[in-house]
Design a binder for these strands. Structure first.
Length: 586
RNA sequence: GCGCCUGUAGCUCAGCUGGAUAGAGUGUCGCCCUCCGAAGGCGAAGGUCGUGAGUUCGAAUCUCGCCAGGCGCGCCA
């Protein structure tokens, strides 16, 4: 049973019967009915707007309608009090026994608590990260990577059959540059380029050197003074870069189900096939693009090319599919790639892009719509940039310059779980700044540890129990009928914990893991509050002289533990059972 | 010029897709450790929700116009 849903359905069905609603009113009710926690606790556990949204449709004063509905609701035994307030809100308080029953669900479902089946096991493809295989991951990649992974986890928790996918851009010019850089380093290993630094335009980073070394180890000097090394070096370099990226991703807790190579799509003819398909569907024509607005471009020339009618499908303009010389663009293979996903049975796709690719969104959506006859939906979420700072000063990243900060470097300083949580605490739409120095602090300035601390404290209670009684408490030692005697904060905590499923759904559907992160923070906060009561009024979780209360307290503690664990797990974070004992450096 | 994103407390950000008195953290100022971990808790102060209209019982939230910042507007990937 999902609490919110249960009550909402109950209210909706009673409303329908009491007012014998017509179809349009039912739709109105379905779309706008809310069940929410009132801002002011004294109003009750929940409030609904049912009477207000229907007042226009039924041509009746909302307060009168509310009275009629309340009469009907009174017949249900789950409500303790029902009141009409303000313009027509119905405030309700649920009976303690109903809360207890709902609370017990946490223990019935355990690790599954928080999941639902909105997705109905439908296949959905989440593509993210997809960094060019030309170097290790840096901070700039990490936000999208962590965000994408969290979105994928969220979707699977609400019942989708999720595939996490990485698109490997192993076909463009940048991998040529990579191979050239490796070759230069390879020559260097044989004593060439003495006193020179790597030429402008190549990748200067040190990560290139081990690749060159491995080729030297394997093949010796056989590629020196040759001309046909490019393809071989490319293949070797990409292979090793992908390994590097995968290992970096793994350190962030990210594992992909599928890697799809752009090169292989081209070589298998998938791209040609997609072009042919577009041709057959009448989506292409020969034409000349207008001169681009905005910045002056010098190399623009009015040449005739093969264009896709993207404008007919919601894009701002038509897009090049084949250049005047017949070669394909990056967009062309990306279209083929999305058709490929569709052919693999994904009718729902999610792409996670960096904000700098925002201009690409419309054309890709247009292409998917056109080529699948609107059978597939493509949802693209943008991640805003992380501006990196160090001690408050901006820190520029440039892959070409080689002075970027690697994920690896960061993980030397900060725990991967903490890094993930930090990235997920803020909305993907916000341009966040990431201060290395500050994140390193791990002091109370850093909110990341707050949730983990709450988790650790729940384990600490159980350890205390063990110290006193010699065994860890099990479910038999718990009393789940605690609502009636609970204090205000405890009731708030119980109510909030039961909202996990709802939050997970909302976070998943909005692709907003930060909502879940914020929720967990609130759970932690309430628990910390209760914890500290012990210092004031003698509130002890474990009290050998009051076993009746202890059994209730343990139920609460273990529920908190379960909720934090489940919630953190969705964000890809392991709940801590104990904090490290290192004190923060002064 | 056009498109997307953002603008909420001194600072960093939430605000559950229209609800009642707008919230946290941090910073400032007070309290609370003979105590299951004080990496914590309690309280005070701090707001014309960028701005002007509109939609309605009701707007930080939806619509439109301005203002400011970020990103993008090739046949690059």
């Amino acid at each position: 049973m999902i609490l919110d849903q249960f009550l909402k359905e109950k209210i909706a069905s009673l409303a329908e019967s009491v007012w014998s609603l017509d179809e349009s009113a039912k739709v109105l009710l379905k779309n706008h009915l809310t069940l929410e926690k009132p801002a002011n606790k004294s109003f009750g556990d929940f409030a609904t707007n049912a009477a207000m949204i229907l007042s226009k449709n039924l041509r009746q004063n909302p307060r009168v309608l509310a009275e009629q509905l309340v009469e009907k609701l009174k017949e249900e035994d789950c409500f303790k009090t029902l009141e009409i307030a303000g313009p027509g809100f119905i405030n309700m308080r649920l009976s303690s026994s109903f809360w207890d029953k709902a609370f017990a669900e946490i223990f019935n479902q355990k690790d599954k608590f928080g999941t639902s089946n909105i997705g109905q096991n439908e296949k959905i493809n989440v593509e993210f990260l997809s960094a060019n295989p030309t170097g290790p991951l840096h901070v700039g990649h990490s936000r999208g990577a962590i965000f994408g992974d969290a979105v994928a986890r969220l979707l699977s928790k609400i019942g989708y059959d999720v595939t996490k996918e990485y698109y490997v851009n192993d076909f463009g010019k940048q991998v040529d540059v990579l191979a050239e850089s490796v070759y230069w380093r390879y020559e260097e290993l044989f004593g060439r380029h003495k006193g020179e630094s790597i030429p402008e335009g190549r990748y200067p980073g040190d990560y290139v050197i081990p690749v060159a070394q491995s080729i030297k180890d394997l093949d010796g000097d056989q590629w020196l003074d040759k001309t046909d090394w490019l393809e071989y070096f490319k293949a070797k370099s990409i292979e090793q870069m992908l390994k590097l990226i995968q290992s970096d991703a793994a350190k962030l807790g990210i594992k992909f189900d599928v890697f799809t190579s752009e090169k292989s799509l081209v070589e298998d003819g998938a791209v040609d096939k997609a072009v042919q398909q577009m041709q057959d569907m009448g989506l292409l024509y020969k034409g000349i693009l207008p001169k681009p607005k905005g910045e002056e471009t010098e190399d623009w020339a009015p040449v005739e090319q093969t264009l896709f009618r993207a404008k007919d499908f919601g894009d701002d303009g038509d897009r090049v599919i084949l250049r005047s010389d017949g070669s394909k663009t990056y967009f062309t293979s990306d279209i083929a790639y999305h058709v490929n996903k569709f052919d693999r049975g994904f009718h729902q796709m999610v792409d996670i892009f960096g904000a700098d690719h925002g201009g690409y969104v419309k054309r890709l959506k247009a292409a998917v719509k056109a080529l699948t006859n609107a059978q597939a939906t493509l949802d693209i979420a943008l991640c805003q940039v992380v501006s990196l700072q160090k001690d408050g000063k901006p820190f520029r990243m440039s892959k070409r310059a080689g002075n970027f900060v690697l994920v690896d470097d960061i993980l030397d300083e900060i725990d991967a779980d903490a890094f993930r949580l930090f990235m997920l605490t803020k909305s993907a739409d916000s341009q966040m700044s990431f201060d290395l120095a500050k994140t390193k602090e791990q002091s109370k300035d850093n909110p990341v540890f707050y949730i983990q601390y709450a988790s650790a404290r729940t384990y600490s209670v159980l350890n205390t129990y063990e110290k006193i009684f010699g065994v860890m408490p099990t479910e038999k030692d718990l009393d789940m009928h605690l609502y009636a005697n609970a204090n205000e904060t405890e009731r708030e905590l119980i109510q909030k914990m039961l909202g996990l499923t709802h939050i997970v759904e909302v976070s998943a559907q909005n692709k907003a893991p930060h909502l879940l992160a914020g929720y967990l923070y609130e759970i932690a906060s309430l628990f910390h509050s209760i914890w500290t009561l012990g210092a004031k009024g003698g509130h002890r979780f474990v009290d050998a002289n009051n076993m009746e209360q202890t059994r209730k307290n343990l139920a609460l503690v273990m529920a908190v533990q379960q909720v934090l664990k489940n919630g953190l797990e969705i964000l890809g974070i392991t709940a801590k059972t104990q904090m490290s004992r290192e004190l923060p450096a002064e």
